[in-house]
Design a protein around this nucleic acid. Structure first.
Length: 209
DNA sequence: ACATTAATTGTGT
DNA sequence: ACACAATTAATGT
């Protein structure tokens, strides 16, 4: 585990902290489409992403979902860090988008790190900053963009995350993630296809870049 | 190989 | 938004 850890976080954390992480953390390999945590569940630890991608989403009172952002290698989940502020239950849902490897660090261990390791303080700070930026982008697109633009941006982001030209997903699933309805998504996708931006297949969308 | 069923996608109102 | 048609995949016999 120490090898993967250094590869991804070697430049981020000081040596002593890397050893500490290796000592208290556990390596987890998770398949794609695996639910790591759901809304309301108690937070177990802080994840450090080694590789893969995790989809972070939120849910409204009716149970409708909304994609917030993705976690990628080198990322951590800022929300879990708010645990120190007294929040013990998760406010988000985390589902793997790709097979992923991550190190889980128990929260009890993390408590002291901020005061002991400057690099950890830095890391937490930067994480917050990055998440905040991503969230603002998402909020902007919801508030100001046309749905067609938002859908297109969603597709581009998905392609970037999974690094494939063909996205295997149903219209229904897309609708849930961008908080719209299946019929609307189908029609917008059809238009994108007519613009030669994509090609539609069953359970799949081919990106024509 | 065929029929049946379910899931996904397309279209009109 | 709703209803329904059309298409494709999955399953059982």
């Amino acid at each position: 585990m120490i090898v993967e850890l250094k590869q991804q976080f070697g430049n981020v954390f000081e040596a002593a902290l890397l050893e500490e992480i290796a000592r208290v953390g556990t390596l987890r390999a998770v398949p794609a489409d695996f639910e790591l945590i759901d809304i309301g569940e108690p937070i177990k630890g802080v994840p450090l992403m080694l590789n893969g991608a995790i989809k972070i989403s939120r849910e409204d009172a009716n149970g409708d979902e909304l994609l917030l952002y993705y976690l990628e290698e080198g990322d951590s989940c800022t929300m879990t860090m708010a645990w120190e502020m007294g929040e013990k239950k998760s406010k988000i849902r985390a589902v793997t988008e790709l097979p992923s490897q991550l190190i889980m660090v128990p929260l009890s261990a993390v408590e002291q790190w901020s005061s002991h390791y400057p690099s950890w303080r830095q890391f937490v700070f930067k994480s917050y900053h990055k998440r905040m930026e991503e969230l603002l982008e998402t909020v902007d697109s919801i508030a100001f963009d046309q749905l067609e633009t938002r859908l297109w941006e969603y597709l581009l982001e998905k392609k970037r995350i999974i690094k494939k030209e063909v996205l295997t997903i149903t219209h229904q699933n897309i609708a849930q993630e961008i908080y719209s309805s299946r019929v609307v998504v189908s029609r917008l996708l059809k238009r994108l296809e007519q613009q030669e931006k994509i090609k539609l297949h069953r359970n799949a969308i081919e990106m024509l870049s």
